[in-house]
Nucleic acid binder design. Structure first.
Lengths: 337, 337
DNA sequence: ATTTTTCTTGCACGCGGGTGCAAAAGCGCC
DNA sequence: GGCGCTTTTGCACCCGCGTGCAAGAAAAAT
């Protein structure tokens, strides 16, 4: 194993000495369009090369007040949409020059603690992907702490101090509702995710409203306490257990793919139902597994790349952030409905 | 959205002024068992409370040469075992007081670049979870850069400058082989993951050897280029496409659950085979989905919590690190084999 | 009351690098 | 060669906090 001092620290001073210039000249050599002669920049670069000099980002952050770090707060790794987002965001941010501090928040209270820790690292922004948090409380923290920006990802926050980056649930869920109606389903069950304290997912409300407009009836709704497929499985099982066969819905509309997958497993293995022959299922997000032959889920595809790019825009100081909460994806029709 | 200066920076100086003491006394107040009078500590704490003072971790890191940061390098978010590990590690590390820098490495070359960036943040350790890297090259970097420890997670690295934390593939895969033999299977197909440049997964070799010892025959082997289930699906499909029905193996032994899940999908949906009636499948890792009713995979359960705890031990400076590469899990028998 | 001993406290200096300004060097020109 | 101007370079000071040491204050011993 590596000893605690296996490395030697090369600072700008070392480079300066070798190059025969002052430390500040070294810094200039590394700074794009700084006033420095070609000759001394050459000397510095050569010296830096031979010494293997790399600037210390900690010191850079301290001095420049920009850390190049973005915190991502996540609370539910069982939700495939979240892991997908983490993967995409870390990749996108890295390409754009930011590094990621991944904070695994344990519960709602802990989200604030996580945010505090992130701020102590002077992150340039904190992105909330998780579901269990209270953005009012967070916004309070926002004022007091060293937090530049708070980005709520994948849902709408009404707090003006935060930036929401998400697709327009109204358009999206309306499209899903239209599709379900157009396919002739008439007895839907909506499976919602955990209720939110503040930053909302509007899918349920939109679906219910659109459905009521079109049919004059209100669909039944059940609520899953988390976006873990296994949990959704249990909730759906409990619901169907209490139902006569004749009372089964003809379509199960789920707030997310994670829920849809759990629901589908429940229907198939718990009640021997065939999808879509006996009952249809729709999801939302189009996570990687949704296209899998097991599920082949009809779902609404999030514009993931666009969302991730929006984060970079915000980091770069985009002025008009309102547009970022109205992005749109597209309906993906597969065999499940 | 938050303006760029929404926060006010409260430093120890501010607290000192309010408390009527010097800055150093403030630091002492926050330092466990520092020599300071109860009275002034009280004053400091009160002042810190009213101002909402929180130490700047960047400055702490710079001054103390300990960042409290650990980098996790990952390359494949499609592999459920990796996301599981990320979740567990971030949680475990956070509880133990470390924060996580998540680096999404794009390819093998990029792993070195990622490690370099991590070192620029003075991480206390870097953990390699990914598969696509070359640990010799990384070890070279290790000497030159500001990297205290390099932990290779989930596989064995022979490089003495790194610490391997993983379960003992020899014991584990022997157990799997014994089980497969005991169930009467005689015509196995081994589906291996991508070949490694240096830090190895020994499962294939162990299985082949044990099988040869027991039966005198050598199982057929095919190689998947990644641990993405979809990719494995394709590889298995291609293999079976070229086979007569009579030549099908009776059991498909997979290097990981991710591969097993892809393989199972291929067998079922591509060739109409029933698992385990027509063909059996085994995995390795026991990822969350492995227990799902769709797969219900017989697999070898990694001692995840033990592995994660081992990381903390190493960070705390555990002397005897050799033990950490010989941990053991347990065989989980389900219906797939 | 004086001297020791023990606590407390203040402070210089360092971590590695960024900023703005002033001195120095280089330049063209008369 | 001397002048004024532009480019280079050096430097003081700062980011916020930690360490070790020495001076000051309080408590104990004489």
């Amino acid at each position: 194993m590596a000893s605690d001092k296996a490395y030697e620290t090369i600072t700008a001073d070392d480079v300066a000495q070798l190059a025969g210039v002052s430390r500040w000249t070294v810094h200039r050599a590394f700074k794009k369009d700084a006033s420095i002669s070609a000759k001394s920049r050459g000397k510095v670069m050569a010296a830096a090369e031979t010494l293997g000099y790399v600037p210390d980002l900690l010191a850079v952050s301290l001095a420049s007040d920009r850390s190049g770090l973005v915190a991502i707060l996540v609370d539910d790794f069982a939700n495939p949409q979240q892991t997908t987002n983490i993967a995409l965001l870390t990749k996108t941010l890295r390409r754009a020059g930011w590094h990621t501090l991944l904070v695994h928040t344990l519960d709602e209270v802990d989200a604030s603690a996580g945010l505090l820790h992130a701020s102590q690292h002077r992150v340039d922004a904190a992105i909330l992907i998780g579901g269990r948090f209270n953005d009012e409380e967070l916004a309070a923290a926002l004022g007091a702490q060293r937090l530049r920006r708070l980005i709520v990802y994948g849902r709408v926050s009404l707090n003006p101090k935060t930036v929401s980056i998400c697709c327009d649930d109204t358009d999206a869920m309306t499209e899903v509702a239209e599709y379900v109606l157009s396919r002739g389903y008439r007895k839907p069950l909506f499976v919602a995710g955990p209720p939110t304290k503040s930053a909302h997912i509007l899918r349920k409300d939109v679906f219910l409203q659109r459905w009521a407009e079109a049919t004059g009836t209100t669909p039944e709704v059940i609520v899953a306490g988390s976006y873990d497929p296994d949990h959704a499985n249990g909730v759906v099982t409990a619901h169907f257990d209490a139902l006569e066969r004749a009372a089964y819905p003809d379509v199960v509309v789920c707030e997310t793919d994670a829920i849809a997958m759990g629901a589908m497993d429940a229907l198939r293995y718990g009640f021997g139902l065939r999808v879509p022959d006996d009952i249809a299922v729709t999801g939302f997000d189009d996570v990687p597994y949704a296209g899998n032959r097991n599920y082949d889920l009809t779902t609404y595809q999030q514009p993931n790349a666009v969302l991730a790019d929006a984060v970079v825009e915000v980091l770069k100081g985009a002025a008009n952030t309102a547009q970022f909460s109205k992005l749109s994806g597209k309906l993906v029709v597969r065999s499940s409905a």
